[in-house]
Design a protein around this nucleic acid. Structure first.
Length: 305
DNA sequence: GCCCAGGCGCTAC
DNA sequence: GTAGCGCATGGG
């Protein structure tokens, strides 16, 4: 990725078909979000790199993402990791040409790619965060899921306060590996989810599960099977993690209720489509199932903006 | 009060 | 391999 270090800020060149505003709309979908903040077109995000907490102020101008550091400028080595994070966060290295080409011939996707052109999958580079968030969201509504996430972060995460604003880091697996089921039960996590999350924290802390291991698998199917061998990780959670963290464009959470509702709206059905119907609908989406899903998810937020 | 929610594990067949 | 069921709790 092409970027320039200007001492007090960095500039990352963005690819063709990138729309910063569209990405911010997605990031702004919940008022309860605690892991980033949006103010006056700037995106504020606290990152921990090499043990240092770095507050980033992210803006956009003339085909570049500009990252400023309101507190202090990091070292070159840290900057490289911040660039890496932002590239994964906004999926900047993806060439969307063939996705848009495919969408031209797809009745469902065509209006969506026109409307949200330049939107990229907003990733979750942190594997622990992606897994915990996917598990929190299982079988509960999103509003409550955000409530639980906020409690989780504020209870176990690290906080930095700057100019009256609080910025949070997602809790580390080390921290969560050391807590008890009751510590999460008291935040209104179910006993089952509490067990899943603490277990995942433990196997990530002891190295049985790492992002590197997932990336090293022969193919995405191997990664999916690896993930699904973990208690609490079913097909939908595995696909969600492959999509948001491993950046697998073919991952397809076909059982996801958000996808079902989006398709119901787009097709003007009076009921949600069945999985069989979705399989038929999605035959054209080959190799781009994750992007198709993400654009459909995006369509759910039009009402609320 | 009722249905639903960005599912999963477990059992029985 | 899969169909069915219990779970567990808040939002609308």
């Amino acid at each position: 990725m092409n970027w320039i270090n200007n001492e007090t800020y960095i500039v990352i060149n963005t690819p063709a078909a990138f729309n910063y505003t569209e990405c911010l709309i997605f990031l702004n979908r919940s008022k309860q979000e605690v892991l980033h903040q949006i103010k006056d077109g700037y995106l504020y995000k606290l990152l921990q790199v090499d043990g240092q907490n770095i507050l980033c102020k992210i803006g956009y101008q003339s085909n570049c993402i500009k990252v400023e550091f309101p507190i202090h400028a990091p070292s070159e080595r840290v900057l490289e990791k911040i660039v890496q994070y932002i590239c994964e966060w906004f999926d900047l290295e993806r060439n969307l040409h063939s996705f848009y080409e495919m969408a031209q011939k797809d009745k469902i996707l065509l209006p969506l790619v026109k409307k949200y052109y330049g939107l990229r999958i907003i990733g979750m580079p942190d594997l622990f965060e992606a897994l915990v968030w996917a598990i929190i969201g299982q079988q509960i509504n999103l509003t409550f899921a955000y409530t639980l996430k906020r409690r989780f972060v504020e209870q176990f995460g690290e906080c930095l306060t700057f100019e009256g604003e609080s910025y949070w880091l997602f809790p580390t697996s080390e921290r969560i590996a050391a807590i008890q089921v009751d510590d999460l039960r008291s935040l209104q996590f179910t006993a089952r989810k509490s067990e899943y999350i603490i277990n995942i924290a433990k196997i990530m802390t002891n190295g049985q599960l790492t992002k590197e291991k997932l990336l090293q698998q022969e193919d995405f199917l191997e990664s999916k099977n690896f993930l699904m061998s973990i208690r609490g990780v079913g097909a939908r959670t595995a696909d969600y993690v492959l999509m948001k963290c491993i950046q697998d464009p073919t991952s397809f959470p076909i059982a996801d209720v958000g996808l079902h509702n989006a398709l119901k709206n787009q097709l003007a059905l009076n009921r949600k489509p069945t999985v069989e119907e979705i399989k038929n609908i999605s035959t054209h989406w080959k190799e781009w199932e994750a992007y198709a899903t993400f654009y459909l998810w995006r369509s759910l937020y039009d009402e609320t903006i």
